[in-house]
C-alpha cells in the first residue's frame, strides 16, 4: 500500500536574484513509500536527498507536482500538524534538536504541542523511552549524554507523537561508529517490532544494506532503485557517480573483474566470507 507518494515533484530554492545559476534541486521525481517498509535513500552531498526528506512532512512545499502522505496533500495548510505527526523528521545534529534540559521533558515536547492530555503524555514518554532503550536516562540532562544517546532521544521525541513513519535525515553523520550502531539498531528495531515505516537518508553504504529497498539519488533525480542486492550489483554505475559500495561488495566486484568466479555480490562481511570460501573450495 502506498503510504507516501511523490508525484512529478520538482523544487527550486530562491536564487536571490542570481538568475544565471540554475538552482533546481529536485527534477520531476516520482517515488512511492510503502507502509511498513524500510527505505533507504542514498546520494552524495547536493544530490537533493535532504530536500526530498523535508517534502515528506511538509517542511518544504513542492514547486511543481504533489506529495501525498497517507492520502493527505502536504500543500494543504489545514493538515499541516496531522502530516507532521504522521511523518516524523529526525535531523542530523542531535544537539540542535533537543529543546528541554531534562530528557523526559524533551520527549514530552511533541505530544504537548499536539495537546495530548497529561496522563497520556506520561505514558507515551515512557513507551518512547523504552522503545529506544533509554528509560534509565529519563532524568538526565541531554548535554551529558553521548552523541548516539542524544540521537536516540531525538528519535524518541518523534516516536512520542506516535507517527506512522519516521524520516531520518543523515542521523548518523555526526556520530562515532559506536553511536552509529546504536542508532541504526534502534531504527531497525522500530521498523521490525513496532511496524513503523522508516525512510533513512544516508551516505553510508553499510547502513543501506539493512534496508528493504534502496533508492539512489543523483542531481535531483533517481539514478536507480531496488533491493540492496540489485542496487549494489551495479558497482560501475554507482562508481561513475562518485558513490561507494560496501567494502565487501567492492572486493568481490574487483575479484570478479580479475576472472574469479563469483555469481552474487555479497553485501556484508559474513556473506563475503561465505562467497570467498565457496570460491576457494
Amino acid at each position: 500500500m502506498n503510504f507516501i507518494s511523490v508525484e512529478n515533484l520538482s523544487f527550486k530554492y530562491d536564487s536571490d536574484g542570481e538568475k544565471l545559476i540554475e538552482t533546481s534541486v529536485i527534477k520531476n521525481l516520482n517515488l512511492r513509500v510503502n507502509q511498513g517498509e524500510f527505505l533507504c535513500i542514498l546520494g552524495h552531498n547536493g544530490s537533493g536527498k535532504s530536500t526530498l526528506a523535508k517534502h515528506f512532512n511538509g517542511m518544504l512545499l513542492p514547486c511543481g507536482g504533489k506529495v501525498y502522505v497517507d492520502g493527505m496533500d502536504t500543500a494543504d495548510e489545514k493538515l499541516c500538524f496531522d502530516i507532521r505527526s504522521t511523518v516524523g523528521l529526525v535531523l542530523q545534529n542531535p544537539d540542535n534538536q533537543l529543546v528541554a534540559s531534562v530528557v523526559e521533558e524533551d520527549i514530552a515536547f511533541g505530544p504537548e504541542n499536539l495537546g495530548v492530555p497529561s496522563a497520556e503524555i506520561r505514558e507515551r514518554v515512557e513507551n518512547a523511552l523504552k522503545a529506544v532503550d533509554m528509560y534509565d536516562y529519563r532524568n538526565h540532562a541531554p548535554h551529558k549524554l553521548s552523541g548516539g544517546q542524544k540521537q536516540r532521544i531525538a528519535i524518541a521525541g518523534i516516536i512520542a507523537m506516535e507517527p506512522k513513519c519516521i524520516v531520518l535525515d543523515e542521523p548518523t553523520a555526526m556520530l562515532d561508529p559506536r553511536g552509529r550502531n546504536e542508532v541504526i539498531s534502534t531504527i531497525t528495531k522500530l521498523n521490525r517490532e513496532y511496524g513503523i515505516t522508516v525512510v533513512l537518508i544516508t551516505h553510508y553504504m553499510d547502513e543501506a544494506v539493512k534496508a528493504d529497498r534502496v533508492v539512489v539519488m543523483d542531481n535531483g533525480e533517481i539514478l536507480t532503485q531496488g533491493t540492496p542486492q540489485q542496487v549494489f550489483a551495479q558497482v560501475d554505475l554507482l562508481k561513475s557517480h562518485c558513490l561507494d559500495v560496501p567494502q565487501a561488495t567492492e572486493i568481490c566486484h574487483k575479484l570478479k573483474k580479475l576472472g574469479v568466479d563469483i555469481k552474487t555480490l555479497p553485501l556484508d562481511e559474513n556473506s563475503c566470507v561465505d562467497v570467498l570460501m565457496e570460491v576457494l573450495r
Binding site: 517542511m59 500538524f81 507532521r84 523528521l89 535531523l91 540542535n96 534538536q97 529543546v99 521525541g157
Partner: peptide, 20 residues
C-alpha cells in the same frame, strides 16, 4: 536547526498546548 526541529514536532506557540 532548532527552529526546524521544533516545527517538525508540531510546535505552534502556546495555544492548545498541554503539559506533561
Amino acid at each position: 536547526d532548532l527552529a526546524m526541529a521544533m516545527e517538525c514536532r508540531c510546535y505552534h506557540g502556546g495555544e492548545g498546548r498541554t503539559r506533561m
